[in-house]
Design a protein around this nucleic acid. Structure first.
Lengths: 137, 137
DNA sequence: ATAAAACCTCTAGCTACTAGAGCTTCAAGG
DNA sequence: CCTTGAAGCTCTAGTAGCTAGAGGTTTTAT
């Protein structure tokens, strides 16, 4: 049995976050001791690790919720889990693509590659006038 | 003079968002016509374009607010604008780095590269047990 | 016995919007 | 001039995923 503090320490999930997960139903309500403090089982620790791990990988709470539901069905469909993960990978790739573009554009703006003089504050100029941008974004 | 609808159309910023920007002070309160409807000037259109562009590049409202303040000071410091942009580029790069790691890890989990059998639902397994991960994340 | 650390609940705040209700004003056609 | 539909108005509440703070109780260690 773990106190919420121990659980937090073991998983790296902050205490208020654990209580928040409980509130939104991502974690089940744990048992309580005589003083009304939460006591967690090993299974609950594992559940929280799962959540933490998935969050670290960028999955939304909704997706994690789905995964947990799949996990709890003894005849759970791996294909469905696969689909969720693939969708998230796709999502991650889209974000990557966008970020790469942004990085490029920011780099260009900062290095005032398109200007002649140094001190015209090309940063503000470029931001004001979209036509000064090299590419769509 | 532009109505809020025209402004929205020209900049690509949604009407409720424009009103939101006004509420938080990012856009100044515009003039009104006799029927109490907002009328925007060319300068206000440019301001909104600036904001839109900066948001598209991923800058936070707070940073944009800072940039606008710099912009409004006639003796504005380009160095300060540079600093804000650089900080944001740094930020973007950090995110990129993290996303790249996530993508790699997701790909690995999905292709169950580490498992032998196909149908153990390695996705859920791996998520439950961090030790099955290849790298830190 | 006492003091500090850990726990409890509850509310409100954060970012950056978005949606909806219920109302008023504007612009164009008849 | 009147009507009708589009566009505008304000206000509140909701979204994701937490985080912070107030004000109280329980546990733990000395």
């Amino acid at each position: 049995m773990f106190s919420i503090g121990k659980l937090s320490h073991r998983t790296g999930v902050k205490i208020p976050t654990i209580r928040y997960y409980e509130k939104i139903g991502l974690m089940d309500e744990p048992g309580r001791n005589f003083g009304n403090q939460r006591r967690y089982t090993q299974a609950e620790l594992e559940r929280l690790s799962f959540i933490k791990h998935a969050r670290d990988l960028g999955l939304s709470i909704a997706s994690i919720s789905d995964l947990i539901r799949l996990h709890e069905h003894p005849d759970h469909s791996c294909a469905a889990a696969h689909t969720i993960a693939e969708a998230h990978l796709e999502n991650t790739r889209r974000k990557l693509k966008k970020l790469r573009k942004l990085e490029k554009e920011l780099k260009r703006i900062i290095s005032h590659a398109h200007g002649d003089r140094i001190n015209d504050c090309t940063i503000i100029q470029t931001l004001t006038d979209h036509r000064l941008c090299s590419s769509e974004h």
